[in-house]
Design a protein around this nucleic acid. Structure first.
Lengths: 358, 358
DNA sequence: CTGAAAGCGCTTACAG
DNA sequence: CTGAAAGCGCTTACAG
């Protein structure tokens, strides 16, 4: 927007535009859609005129005519973001603000990718079984030609989505037993990265602080922690594994269990990106200095809220974008992998230090 | 979904449906749209057949034909949710998970209301000035016939939105100097409710714990606090007002300032729904018992994360729904108020008690 | 109460 | 390289 202020244009049709340019409607349309049959000069004139007049082809008409000439490679133009939410549940407590946050990050990532391919995103939330009808209506009315599915995705949910006959991709976690196409963060790799980082700093007694272990990813992270310990040939000790970290003050009690009996760990990896009390406070409350007495690697969503803390960052936005890419490939009839793993990042901060400096 | 499993139907057109029912296309359409000209029996047959066959009128065709017969009262069918986000900013830190949360709550509320009127919601995020074009394209292509605007809404943003010639409503905070239509929470009323509640319990020395004072609503809440003290004829003391509550451990320091010099307050109202360390911990850390030594009223989004804590609840979801209502009224050419205030709720918990019990 | 017809704004196959 | 024409699926004014 060079003017800094948008000008209001009247709504023009292709026909009016074509007349303005002394072109046939047909040539105008071909030029606008970049068809090679129209010469460069004409194409340029058309594009320029469209820009100047703020002309955009009517979307409804475009969609309608598409029903006539079914292309072999249908382009994605409108994607639905299906957010499967618990019925009565609010966004509080455990599901918590973190749930809200990852959903929004996925949404942002998806929207961004969709924008780049000139498609739009329809947000639909399903929390009761009666809501399935609305998503189905949207599909059947031609408003959505592909679905991104996120939240509490299970077999029943997928049976609905499947029945609509549109391409679909699950974003994030799911609890489906059948084969599904999904894009998720590589949770195991998060544990591996953390252990690798700490091992690189000379730590050999690394503790694992896990979540409720009710979700698949939580077990995945614990398994990957164990595997990484073996890989790097580190000491193992069941006392260095604590799970069921609560969201409130009693977090302190769980962390304290690491220090009941010697040998104490020299580093802690906390796998939950969820609502952990800020780490500084958590360890402060136990009179630990960071990284004086102990090294710490936490977990966070994109961007991060606790600067300076070493952490595994979970790029949910990227997962959203990647999901859109997968969906587009499906829509285009191209081969797509069943599962795409989005790798987390290790961001080294000041909370982890060489073992020799402790 | 009585079957528990969605059946897949082929895509049928109105014409095919009409033929199935031995009706003219015209009668079928009228019946489907509830036009009074068609008799009850026919209407019922049509509706039933539509349900059975999973028939939904093609949306694109509907939109297209609407351009021909412009109704005086245009119904809202597709609404854009314009999320004005800071460019480089992630959802971390101060803007924090709370920002993500309120946005998602507004979105949920809006989607819910829209669903009830059989309309859909398109999510658009604008973070750079170059992104304005995408929202404009969406409007000009006929994909969006009304806008809900949320986030960092300022005069420049509104000048863009205005230029698209569609109805629009701001959800939540804004910093516009011009006259705008908006739906926001009644922040002042939150302070009033809290003071009223505490006064009812006999408290006369009530402290105010505020945020960064960089947003309009934060000042509004402080002013309303002062006003409520006057109204209830309570003691005032500038030491009982502390603002700039940080998001980390140093929160304790700010709270401690209430207790530097006597007389101490007997109750605290915390106005920020944002990332306050859970109250229990905050006051625990200061060796206060709740409500033993002091009464506390906090602030939270819908639903609440700290059960048992007395709080002012901010119904962001409701604000989203109300915004949709306003937008629909505008689209229908009906008169709409410039500003609609959504009232917060006071939820009494165990953290506030009668002064006589302390 | 119902039917035959026009046309919304586009895109593309078909002739030239 | 270009034009005249068909038609996507609907809704509504216009006759009957």
């Amino acid at each position: 927007m060079t003017t800094g202020q948008a000008r209001s244009h009247p709504m023009l049709t292709s026909e009016q535009m074509a007349r303005k340019l002394s072109l046939s409607l047909c040539t105008f349309s071909h030029a606008l859609n970049g068809h090679p049959r129209v010469c460069e000069r004409t194409r340029h004139r058309v594009m320029e005129a469209a820009r100047e007049n703020g002309f955009v082809a009517n979307h409804a008409a475009r969609l309608l005519v598409r029903a006539r000439f079914k292309p072999k490679h249908s382009r994605l133009s409108q994607v639905g973001f299906l957010f499967l939410d618990d019925a009565g549940t609010t966004l509080g407590e455990d599901a918590g603000s973190s749930l809200g946050l990852w959903c929004l990050l996925l949404l942002r990532g998806a929207e961004h990718a969709l924008h780049d391919m000139d498609a739009s995103l329809t947000f639909v939330r399903v929390s009761k079984s009666s809501h399935w009808a609305k998503a189905e209506r949207l599909t059947r009315s031609g408003c959505v030609d592909g679905w991104l599915v996120a939240g509490r995705v299970d077999d029943e949910a997928i049976s609905h989505v499947k029945s609509w006959g549109r391409p679909w991709v699950i974003l994030g976690n799911h609890s489906c037993s059948q084969k599904v196409t999904s894009v998720d963060l590589d949770h195991g790799d998060g544990s591996r990265l953390a252990i690798q980082h700490l091992t690189g700093l000379g730590h050999r007694r690394i503790a694992f602080l896990g979540g409720t272990m009710t979700h698949g990813y939580q077990n995945e992270m614990l398994q990957a922690y164990r595997k990484a310990l073996r890989k790097f040939d580190l000491e193992t000790n069941e006392q260095w594994i604590q799970t069921n970290l609560p969201t409130d003050r009693s977090q302190y009690e769980v962390v304290k269990r690491f220090f009941v009996r010697k040998p104490y760990p020299t580093a802690i990896f906390a796998s939950e990106p969820g609502p952990i009390l800020p780490v500084r406070d958590l360890l402060h409350g136990l009179d630990w200095k960071l990284p004086g007495n102990i090294s710490f690697v936490g977990s966070e969503m994109n961007g991060g809220q606790t600067p300076g803390i070493s952490r595994v960052e979970w790029p949910y936005e990227e997962a959203g974008s990647v999901g859109v890419g997968t969906l587009a490939r499906m829509a285009g009839g191209r081969k797509t992998p069943l599962f795409t793993a989005v790798k987390p990042l290790l961001v080294a901060g000041r909370s982890s230090a060489r073992i020799s400096d402790i």
